[in-house]
């Protein structure tokens, strides 16, 4: 707790030992930056490393062999296509199912709203492994295992609560005066929907799409219990490569996996305030 006291002191009374408190502050920040960044650096270097054995700080030589392996031996393009198809399906299903419910919860009188909301958020409260076994058994009896639709349905259980949460808040926050103006000016419901509701709900919709994508693209537990040879995703492929002990190939796949995440990260930073997105991300 001393660091806390020092940091608080530094802010409140900068005159007392400014040099020391500044030193501590920047050491703390530097340590934090290194702590967060170094795993990425380790993966990047490993993915192109050759002759990197005990005691060396950097690999003896560099190679693109592991990327070649990742693309050809593990069929990375096919696996990537699976990941994107499943993420796309998850987005579509989550929005189609979630938006009507979000509209009702956000703009209409719903009895037992709190109970309903708690139930809808429950899949994000209990760890996925608690219903993964049952889901797997259910999917076997419905013949949904190893289908893109099946894996997407499994991912939707985690994406839907977030879509409902964020969209109902978005709908509840729509400016009533604008909607009233639309009605007064004689717009029919469809015109009002397209020209008034849709633009106003766009930030929430964007957030829902982005985070449904991230949820599906990164989901491990529910993919592991529903995937098959035809629906191998990047996540599971990374796990299999690590399990086989091919850390270099796994690193190469990881670098490929990082690309969409980094793009999304930059997009989100511009579009949405980070504080608003917590409910949607799940790093399991």
């Amino acid at each position: 707790m001393t660091a806390v006291a020092v940091a608080a002191g530094a802010r409140i009374r900068p005159r007392v030992g400014p040099g020391l408190s500044r030193l501590i502050t920047y050491t703390f920040l530097l340590a934090f930056v290194l702590y967060v960044l170094s795993p990425f650096l380790a993966i990047l270097v490993t993915s192109i490393a050759q002759d990197w054995f005990g005691g060396r700080i950097l690999p003896g030589s560099l190679t693109l062999r592991w990327f070649d392996w990742a693309f050809n031996v593990t069929n990375l393009p096919g696996v990537m296509a699976n990941s994107f198809i499943i993420a796309g399906l998850t987005i579509a299903i989550s929005l189609v199912i979630g938006i009507p419910t979000a509209w009702a919860l956000g703009r209409r009188h719903v009895r037992a709203r709190n109970v309903l909301m708690t139930l809808i958020l429950l899949p994000k409260t209990v760890p996925p492994i608690t219903f993964a076994l049952g889901l797997s058994r259910e999917f076997y009896s419905f013949d949904l295992v190893d289908t893109h639709l099946g894996v997407a349905l499994a991912h939707t259980t985690l994406a839907l609560p977030f879509v409902v949460l964020i969209m109902s808040a978005t709908f509840a926050g729509l400016d009533e005066r604008v909607l009233e103006a639309g009605r007064v000016c004689g717009g029919n419901w469809f015109r009002n929907l397209v020209h008034l509701v849709l633009p106003m709900a766009m930030p929430g919709l964007m957030a829902s799409v982005l985070f449904t994508f991230v949820t599906s693209f990164n989901e491990f537990t529910l993919t592991l219990v529903t995937y098959g040879p035809d629906t191998l995703t990047l996540t599971v492929q990374t796990y299999l490569a690590i399990g086989d002990g091919f850390l270099e190939v796994a690193s190469a796949i990881s670098v490929v996996l990082l690309v969409p995440s980094v793009i999304l990260l930059l997009l989100i930073q511009r579009q949405i305030r980070p504080e608003n997105i917590l409910g949607g991300v799940k790093g399991l």
Partner: peptide, 29 residues
């Protein structure tokens, strides 16, 4: 720094775990 705080959220846990395993390895950095 704010962007950096978000980074672990956007990245697959498995990938970060792999990076951390390599980093903290007995022969790691």
């Amino acid at each position: 720094l704010r962007l950096l705080v978000l980074a672990p959220l956007m990245i697959l846990a498995l990938v970060s775990a792999l990076g951390l395993l390599i980093l903290w390895d007995r022969n790691g950095w």
